[in-house]
């Protein structure tokens, strides 16, 4: 279980997270919802140490992560699919997967498992990541994160800019990971893509977590009240 409590973080002098608390449980999809600029992506970066929190704690199964250097945090079992994919554009698909595998010392078995999840990538192993289609890039970004065999998967707008068939594929993989016991923390702008997926939702407003609701309470009325949609 990933738990963040009272997170505060700043880009230089500008504080963007004032007080964020959330919990992502194993076998659940926790959605992080909020308007543009509410601090959703910054929260994921703070959990990963890419935006070091100035206050607050982050723990994974009780072990503190917030004091670790950023490159040590993924090794504890946190996989990250960044907004906009952020692939290493000049690395090939095989090299990108290798980078993911190296993070936690995973081997051929994990590589085969990931390539079985995304068979299209197997056909593109020698191709540079930057030359893949948008959908294939998203598959690769997800595959790279899954190569860690993480306990928690952080997904930042994984369906952004994708065609419907690709959105379905990413949704299917996300649900499969949830069913296999992964804790998933999902940031998504497309409400239609996530409403039926979320087991729990945390609403953010201007850098503060203001409400956590269970699936049963995640109704269009709640979304309208919190997000105005």
């Amino acid at each position: 279980m990933l738990e963040a409590t009272g997170l505060r973080a700043a880009y230089g002098p500008v504080e963007v997270l004032h007080d964020v608390s959330l919990t992502a449980r194993a076998g659940e999809i926790t959605c992080l919802l909020g308007r543009n600029g509410a601090g959703k992506s910054s929260t994921l970066k703070a959990i990963l140490g890419l935006l070091p929190p100035s206050r607050g704690t982050v723990t994974l199964d009780g072990a503190a992560l917030h004091a670790l250097p950023a490159h040590e945090i993924p090794k504890r079992g946190i996989g990250y699919v960044p907004q906009g994919r952020r692939l290493f554009r000049e690395l090939t698909v095989a090299e990108t997967i290798e980078v993911g595998l190296m993070t936690r010392g995973e081997g051929r078995e994990t590589r085969d498992w990931v390539l079985d999840l995304f068979p299209r990538l197997r056909e593109r192993l020698g191709q540079q990541a930057g030359t893949l289609s948008g959908g294939e890039q998203q598959m690769l970004a997800t595959a790279r994160a899954l190569c860690l065999r993480p306990k928690v998967l952080l997904l930042d707008e994984p369906t952004e800019g994708l065609q419907p068939s690709m959105i379905d594929l990413i949704r299917d993989v996300t649900v499969r990971m949830r069913d296999e016991g992964y804790a998933i923390l999902l940031v998504e702008q497309r409400m239609d893509a996530i409403l039926d997926l979320a087991d729990r939702a945390v609403f953010l407003e201007t850098g503060r977590s203001v409400e956590t609701v269970a699936r049963a309470d995640l109704t269009p009325q709640t979304l309208h009240r919190r997000l105005g949609v």
């Binding site: 990963l48 140490g49 890419l50 250097p69 950023a70 490159h71 040590e72 993924p74 090794k75 990250y80 960044p82 952020r86 692939l87 290493f88 554009r89 000049e90 690395l91 090299e95 290798e98 980078v99 993911g100 190296m102 993070t103 936690r104 790279r144 860690l148």
Partner: peptide
């Protein structure tokens, strides 16, 4: 080599490299 792969990954996106355990 693996060391070269780490260098190229860091060259292309140092922040994401850290998110994959690379000690930038």
């Amino acid at each position: 080599t693996r060391a070269g792969l780490l260098m190229r990954a860091t060259q292309q996106d140092s922040e994401t490299a850290q998110a994959f355990g690379i000690p930038v």
